[in-house]
């Protein structure tokens, strides 16, 4: 859960600097989360409840968040690197005329002097960056931080921050939300992921991957090119602009291993790659590799594993 991961990171900062960790909690009916947030590492929770905050809408959230920031006057503002966080952070940064580093994976700190570590060039390089303004903002890449071990004995205040929003602040109107017909097993939580890439050639081939995933109790993933071809749902995309996954085993089938994809799965404990190009970058970072056409390999692999596991 991105928020809990971010709180875990904040606690580590607090351990090194003695900083106080405040959480800004926004929504229609959210004050009941206060105890869980304190237990997960927050020292104080500032809450703004308002029916206009029921769904995330940038303008209103920026306003509400800005209210709370004015009260706290923080040195560092941390956003989770989920959709909401990545949208809100630059807007808040603009309002505060302060430096923002997106997609951080780590930090160093001495007193109030922070250095933020972030992948760049699609993950081919790592940059160490500093913010020159008095307030710094960061977003944190999901799955890179450990949540704080929950301790419900922790205590902390809840501070209500009232806010009224002059209407209309809404400059866009949501017409429709369509939940995706996704795959069955949640990609980010799965211990086994079976992913396909451009090398699959068509959407039909994903049937084989689904079959393999099923035998292994795994989830199906994909690289961006496969998604952009329309072969599989966007929510299956693993990569820098998709999901970050850290399964026990990751199968990369027909995936070349472009750095943007690696960014999403390099944290996997064990990587199996099947690719007919011996020079494919994925074969340099996998644990086990097969240099062959996946069509020659998968049917037998599925049969063997089916037999062994009895599925």
């Amino acid at each position: 859960m991105p928020t809990l991961e971010v709180l875990g990171m904040a606690r580590k900062i607090a351990d090194k600097t003695g900083a106080q960790i405040a959480v800004a909690l926004l929504g229609a009916e959210v004050s009941s989360f206060h105890r869980e947030l304190i237990g997960s590492g927050a020292d104080v929770v500032y809450v703004t409840e308002n029916k206009d905050l029921a769904d995330y809408q940038a303008n209103i959230y920026v306003r509400a968040f800005g209210n709370i920031v004015e009260r706290i006057k923080p040195d560092l503002i941390i956003f989770p690197g989920d959709g909401t966080g990545k949208d809100l952070a630059p807007r808040v940064a603009y309002g505060l005329k302060s430096g923002l580093v997106m997609d951080c994976i780590d930090f160093e700190v001495e007193g109030k002097d922070f250095t933020f570590i972030k992948p760049v060039y699609g993950g081919k390089a790592i940059a160490r960056m500093k913010v020159t303004t008095p307030v710094a903002l960061i977003t944190v890449r999901p799955k890179t931080q450990e949540p704080f071990p929950r301790d419900m004995n922790r205590t902390g205040d809840q501070i209500i921050v009232e806010a009224e929003f002059a209407s209309p602040l809404l400059d866009t109107k949501v017409l429709e939300r369509i939940e995706e017909e996704g795959e069955e097993i949640n990609l980010e939580d799965s211990e086994v992921v079976v992913s396909g890439g451009r090398g699959l050639g068509n959407s039909e081939s994903f049937k084989q991957l689904r079959h393999l995933a099923k035998i292994l109790n795994g989830a199906v993933g994909a690289s961006r090119p496969a998604v952009d071809q329309g072969w599989i749902a966007p929510s299956c995309q693993v990569g820098q602009t998709g999901k970050i996954v850290t399964p026990s085993v990751y199968f990369a089938i027909g995936i070349s291993g472009a750095s943007q994809h690696l960014a999403g799965m390099i944290g996997s404990k064990f990587i199996v790659a099947i690719n007919r190009d011996p020079e494919a970058p994925i074969l340099k970072i996998a644990n086990l590799g097969i240099v062959d056409d996946y069509r020659e390999v998968l049917p037998t692999l599925i049969d063997e594993l089916s037999r062994i596991t009895g599925k």
Partner: peptide, 12 residues
């Protein structure tokens, strides 16, 4: 002015 500076760039 720059609000963010690059201290180092390395290849992991």
């Amino acid at each position: 002015d720059r609000l963010v500076t690059v201290e180092d760039l390395i290849i992991p």
